[in-house]
């Protein structure tokens, strides 16, 4: 059980109006705090959006952005290492689908030496257990620090 917690990664999610300069304000704040953004995506709806990011100092990012008046929350995501070849994504998606775990959103992280898929699923702990059982490599949260 304890092992599973290691694979829960704290993503920060930021509510943002869909207008020029909002992403720049967020990015500038990260620069000022010397926080590195490791992976990142923007989900957009009509008029607003949610910026999601994995950063190396999530608590510090949370406080900085909250102080600036942004609405910020933490979300648990998992990071799955994919085989960097045809069928790599299919393998992960199939395992989760078979286990009836729903992927709510996903985005990619192509770091140093790995292709990593960041996933938000409806049940992160079940997903971790399922993937580990099938010998899929998950990145520990410490990987992003």
């Amino acid at each position: 059980m304890n092992q599973i917690e290691h694979y829960l990664i704290k993503q920060i999610s930021i509510f943002s109006e869909n207008r020029p300069g909002r992403l720049a304000a967020i990015a500038q704040a990260m620069q000022e705090e010397r926080i590195n953004i490791l992976a990142f995506s923007i989900a957009e709806a009509d008029g607003f959006g949610v910026v999601r990011a994995l950063v190396d100092h999530s608590e510090r990012a949370y406080h900085k952005l909250t102080d600036m008046g942004f609405m910020v929350s933490f979300t648990d995501v998992i990071a799955v290492r994919m085989r960097d070849e045809p069928g790599g994504l299919y393998e992960i998606a199939r395992i989760l689908g078979d286990a009836n775990i729903n992927i709510e959103y996903a985005y990619a992280y192509t770091g140093k030496d790995a292709a990593v898929l960041i996933l938000r699923v409806n049940n992160a702990r079940d997903a971790i257990a399922t993937l580990l059982k099938r010998n899929v490599t998950l990145m520990e949260s410490s990987f992003f620090k």
Binding site: Q11, S13, F15, A43, E44, A45, F48, G49, V50, R52, M71, S73, T75, E104, R120
Partner: peptide, 11 residues
């Protein structure tokens, strides 16, 4: 703040 969700669908 309480109502903010990371899911676009909730918003």
């Amino acid at each position: 703040h309480e109502a903010f969700s990371d899911r676009i669908k909730d918003l």
